[in-house]
Each structure stands twice: as C-alpha cells, then as structure tokens.
C-alpha cells in the first residue's frame, strides 16, 4: 500500500459530555473509493465534517496528503473537493457564476478549467441559467463540478445520492468510477444505502454509534462463497419438490418459500436436482442463485440494528 491520501488517527469528537465519534482510525490509499456505511446518526457526517474542517477535532489527528487539517488547514483543504450533504449553491446566481465564485477561492483555476468541468458534468446548455431554475439532478451535477474545479486529489461526498433518481445515481457512480480510473482521484463517500455502496465502493467502513466496527473489501463483505450457495427454485407443488430434492441429494438444507423452494448446495449438483425434479413431474419456472446481500451481512455485523 503506498502513502495514504487520508489518514485518521484515534479521532474522537465530544460535544459536552457526549462522545459523538469514538477513537476512529483508518487510512485510504490513492485511487480508492472508500465508503462510510451506517445507520443515520452513526457519525458519518460528523466524521466527514471533521475531515473538511467544518467541525473541530476533540482528540486525534486527521491528515490529508500529509497535512494536518486542524493545524495546516489551507494546505490540507487545497487537495479536497467536497459535497457536504446537498450541494447548496447560491440560487440567485447562475451556475456559471457559482463556479466563478469557487474558482476565485483557489489559485490557478482558469476560465478554461471552468469550461472543462462544465463539459464533464454536461451542463453546457444551462450553465448561464440561475441555479434556482435547476432540477435537483442538475444541482447535483453542479455540485460535482464545483468539487472538481481545483483538480483535487481527494473527493469527499456526504450522502451524495440523497434525493437523486436512479438515473442520477447511476450518472454519479459513473463519474466517480471515471475519476478514480482516469485521474487517479481518491473518493470517500458516505451513505446509509447499502445497495449503492455495493455498486460504488472498493472498501467500506461500517460505522455504528460513533465507532468503526469493521473495514472490509466489498467482496469480502458480500461473501462470494463458491462451495455452497443458496438457489431459489421456483417450482410447484413445493411439498413434492422438497421430497424430490431430499430423495436425490440426501441431507441438504432445503426449505419451502412463497413461490417454490430454497436449496443450499454445490453448483455441480444443480443439474441432477433439476433432472430429478422434472422426472418427479414437478413444474419448474426458474432457478436463481441467491447471493447473500450486503444488507444481510450488515445486519449480521451490526446485530440486527435497523438501517436507513
């Protein structure tokens, strides 16, 4: 692992006597999409706000490209592009003037660069309209544009998909993939939606009550265990199907579900099972492998705490 872009060391945030964030540490290497997952109120937003200097850090240190965010704020934040919750822009200004506004705050952002990011987020046609006339999706895209203006090496997005329609979410996902691949940007993104994280991230930190309880590669988390997997066989009548499966496969896990049965077995055995079912005159409508979803794993890890 090369030098991490972001590094949190024993970060703690206390407000009054309440501990909001408790001793959080992790590193994010270059080019990774790192996810923060957890129920609302777990401390995702607070952690992100400490990382961008909107909130003070009670204990511990956060460094971005080796610069301490609390002590060397201006040098550290230079590398960061951020969207903290909804990208709230100046509604009375045009999209273009909003970008001019942020461009002026960082040295070296030229008019050409503004044009470039506007093209990247495909807002060329509407960039001179007032932001109050924008749809939510367009505002989100303008939010991405302002975050990318100064060519940050780290992009921090807090709940970026809130309020976006599926097309918008997909679009955002594609940007992020593009940015990590083509420009080597590192991305930290928080969400309470597991399905999104599953599609977007390389690694995920699971937060609960101000602590990180697990950091895992997305593959590990989903658990692609090839030896034994559960398959849904849509079949009727299910009693007959269960009996037939027991007959051929012996003592394997099989249970009736609403529109058929669920069988846990090796992949190689599926053809035999199906052949036998057909011989026994069970009607088969479909076979689907059931992956254990991130949600199941999440509930497992967090001990059943509700998500979202």
């Amino acid at each position: 692992m090369n030098e991490p872009i972001v590094s949190l060391r024993n970060v703690t945030k206390r407000i009054g006597r309440k501990t909001i964030i408790d001793n959080v540490s992790f590193d994010v290497p270059k080019g990774e999409i790192f996810g923060f997952l957890g129920p609302n109120g777990a401390g995702k937003t607070t952690t992100i706000r400490m990382m961008v200097g909107l909130m003070s850090i009670t204990e511990g240190t956060i460094t971005i490209q080796g610069k301490n965010i609390a002590r060397e704020f201006e040098q550290a934040i230079r590398h960061v592009g951020g969207i903290v919750e909804n990208p709230e822009m100046y509604k009375f200004l045009s999209g273009y003037h909003n970008l001019v506004h942020y461009a002026r705050m960082v040295p070296g952002v030229t008019k050409d660069r503004i044009r470039e990011v506007v093209e990247l987020v495909k807002l060329e046609d509407r960039i001179h309209d007032k932001v109050k006339k924008y749809s939510l999706g367009m505002r989100q895209r303008l939010g991405v544009a302002q975050a990318l203006l100064h060519r940050p090496s780290l992009l921090i997005l807090d709940e970026p998909t809130n309020g976006l329609d599926p097309a918008g979410i997909r679009e955002l996902r594609d940007y992020l993939r593009y940015l990590t691949r083509e420009e080597g940007i590192t991305v930290i993104v928080s969400s309470h939606l597991l399905s999104e994280m599953e599609l977007m991230c390389d690694r995920v930190a699971i937060m609960m009550r101000g602590r990180i309880i697990d950091v895992k590669r997305i593959g590990e988390l989903i658990g692609t265990n090839d030896d034994a997997q559960t398959y849904l066989i849509e079949a009727s009548p299910s009693e007959l199907a269960i009996a037939a499966v027991r007959e051929i496969a012996g003592a394997i896990a099989v249970k009736p579900v609403q529109n058929g049965i669920e069988v846990t077995t090796d992949r190689d055995r599926i053809p035999d099972i199906l052949a036998h079912l057909i011989r026994m005159e069970v009607r088969i409508y479909g076979v689907t492998p059931l992956r254990q979803s991130l949600e199941d794993r999440f509930l497992e890890i967090t001990g059943g705490e509700r998500v979202g």
């Binding site: 961008v52 200097g53 909107l54 704020f73 201006e74 040098q75 934040i77 230079r78 960061v80 951020g82 969207i83 903290v84 919750e85 909804n86 990208p87 709230e88 822009m89 100046y90 509604k91 942020y102 705050m105 960082v106 302002q146």
Partner: peptide
C-alpha cells in the same frame, strides 16, 4: 440558513 456556508468554508481560505 441556506447552507452555502459549508461549500464556502471548505476552501483554502481561513
């Protein structure tokens, strides 16, 4: 009140 302060303060300006 409009929330624009967040994007304003995450820039290299004290």
């Amino acid at each position: 009140s409009t929330g624009t302060i967040k994007l304003l303060l995450i820039r290299p300006a004290s």
